[in-house]
Amino acid sequence: MTITQILFGVFAGLACVSAIAVVLVDNVVRMAFWLVMALGAMAGLFLLLHADFLAASQLLIYAGGTVVILIFGVMLTATGPFASLKSSAGQTVPGLSVSGLLIAMLVSTIAAVPWTGLGKAVGRSPASLDQGVMRQGDLAAAMADSDETREAVMAVTDNWQNRVEVGRSTAPLGLALMGLRPDRDLIAGNKPSTLSPGYLLPFEIISIHLLVVLVAAGYLARAKRPRATEEVHIVTAGSSVTPKEHRIDAATSESADG
């Protein structure tokens, strides 16, 4: 038993149990609770996979943001206290059995594929991964000319890839989103003729996408438009003054006064 195995067991067990509980529980808010548990356990698994930044994003965006908004939605749409919509057995039994079959199929496929063939392309043993791991300032280290830091220069070129391996992936992730791939291009002894492509365009697209979603969600969720315009219509029909006309009246009267 290694530490990783124990932690994996805890997080994986919590994730699976919570995910199953999400399916089986009827009350929506209890579902949200189990969803938070599942998402939190997934963040733990992300940490085990050395994806610190993704784990933090998962907690901030999913568990702290999305689930809160979902519960907010439940509160806004609840017709009674603790309302739960029960599905009929005619829906539940086929649904559960189909998804059970799906899980069985996926698991059997996973068991059947020889994953060892997908090993690391770049030949580096796990033991060497922990060598030469540094934080901020690796490239600056290369510029310094004392003997000790000079020794580190060779490690620096390989370092960017190592950072990804050992969970210090925040800076490489950010650079990849800016279109730079030091983890690909800065490998010792490897002189690429062209630089690897980054993710600048997807990053820009997703930014625009988020803006569009922001506007769209705000527009969709606002109070119903037809009723508001109807009211204005009725008011004008009843020969009373709408705000716009009122303003015009005020302006004209002012100019008349002047």
């Binding site: 901030l60 568990a63 702290g64 809160v68 519960i71 925040t170």
Partner: peptide
């Protein structure tokens, strides 16, 4: 590596 982000993320869970 992203301690600040992690702390902000975990703090945001309190609201749940």
């Amino acid at each position: 590596n992203c301690g600040l982000f992690l702390v902000l993320a975990i703090l945001s869970l309190e609201v749940i």
